[in-house]
Simulated scan of single mutants.
Amino acid sequence: MPQRLIASVLLGHYLSAFTTLGIPLYLPRILADLAPDAPGWSIGVLFILPTLCTALAAPLWGHLADRHGCRLSLLRAHAGLCAGFLLAGFSPNLTVFVLALMIQGTFGGAMAASNAYLATQLKDGNLSRALNWTQYSARLAMISGPILLGLLTASGMGLELYRVLAWLPLLAFVLILPLPADAPRRQARTSDGDGDEWPDQLPNDLPRLLAVQFLFSFAMVVTFPYFVPYGEALGVGNDALIGLLYSLPHLVYLVALPWAQRQAANLLLPGLGLLALTNALQFWSDQPDLLFTLRLLSGAGMLLGFVGLHRCLSQRSRNGSAGRLFGWYDSSGKWAGAAAGVTAGLVSQSCGIASPFLVAGLVAFAALVLARPLLIAPREITA
């Protein structure tokens, strides 16, 4: 059952991630059809609106998941995403479309819900590996989604694309239905023991873990929005080549994850250091020939950072608190993404198109300094 359970959760997560990560790239085209008079800045607002809603809602859904079951919360996430996409696909105007995006973000959150449910079924090393594969499905969706959906938009599909994509989270919902339910918090405390395990408590160093997750996510995302003009400024004139360079870190994750999972030591600190160094070098570099190598090394830093954070996370996961732990963890990453998007716009306007890479390097170094106690501190808990 564990392998079948993991496969069902991962496939379900990929289907939902494919919808949410693939379609935002084509928001300008969809908005031009739905509300051609909408101001240009509205595209940016609509782009981050689901992310902000998820960041706000994830801790609450995590609390409810611990009280009523993480499998139920995972079903809610897939169903909420399906409902949001259906409403978006039938939106008669911009107001209804904005409401649909808010439903998508507020009632979605498949990443946190998938990880929390896996945490109720797996422990320590098995859980850490499963979290790596959940991130793998997200990276795969981030690469495959824009490409495949681009083919559909090229064929003339616009707003109706949301209606087609609504079937994917619905299929994910069906995949999760036959999986075993987990015990809610009070049942978990009763069944797991009375005093020593404290199964419904959160780790004492959770604020530090969330801060490292925030900084790590920020460092990755802040370089994304203006990567195309950055590549053009270096003299890379081919759009396909810029797209390849943009995707290289994610491809490194997809290819090298099996190797990284076999490493006995937690390589979080080397990963953050490599991420800081490569981003700083991308800021200082004016040679397009070096960019390919730097993007590969940046991907290696991202991979080691993810695997290291997942090990820290799995070591702190307990029955009865998985929903809250992963809810707060996902919320931290979503807030980081929103903040990074705003910061990228501000610094690129005032300090140059390469400046987000310098910001990413400094933030990754700050995460490195902050992360060290996570590897040596005992696994304490607090209320």
Rank of each mutant, 00 (worst) to 15 (best):
I147L: 15
S73R: 11
V9W: 04
A154F: 14
P229S: 02
Q287M: 11
P178H: 08
A55F: 10
L313Q: 03
D37H: 09
P225T: 01
A336F: 08
A338T: 15
G235V: 10
N279F: 05
P178S: 11
A336T: 10
G323E: 05
F357L: 05
A32T: 13
R189F: 11
R71E: 04
I242N: 06
P258V: 01
D33I: 14
L122W: 15
I6T: 06
S332L: 03
S144V: 13
P378V: 00
R262I: 00
L234N: 14
A188L: 11
G62T: 06
G308K: 06
L159A: 14
K123C: 14
S247P: 08
P270I: 04
T20H: 12
L294F: 15
D192N: 08
Q201C: 15
Q213S: 09
P59I: 00
L94E: 08
G89V: 05
A116W: 01
T382P: 02
R29T: 12
L272R: 01
L272I: 07
L304H: 13
L368W: 07
A172Q: 12
H68F: 12
I6Y: 06
G62M: 09
T343S: 10
P378S: 01
N115Q: 10
G327Q: 04
W41D: 09
Y136F: 09
S114Y: 03
V369T: 10
P249F: 06
Y162A: 00
R324H: 05
P199H: 08
S317V: 04
A211S: 07
D200I: 06
L375C: 06
C82Q: 12
A300T: 15
L15N: 00
P36E: 03
T120E: 14
L294W: 12
V236D: 09
L60M: 11
F357M: 03
L159F: 14
M157T: 14
L297I: 07
Y230S: 08
I176Q: 03
A38G: 00
F365C: 15
L374Q: 08
E380Q: 15
S128I: 02
S155I: 04
L60G: 01
A280V: 14
F227P: 07
L375I: 01
F18D: 01
P356K: 00
A65L: 02
F97L: 07
A113V: 08
Q213E: 06
H63K: 15
G158K: 09
G62Y: 07
A360G: 07
Y246G: 05
L165T: 09
P288W: 06
Q3M: 12
V45L: 13
I23T: 09
F365A: 15
E197H: 11
L99Y: 12
G44T: 04
A79Y: 09
P373H: 13
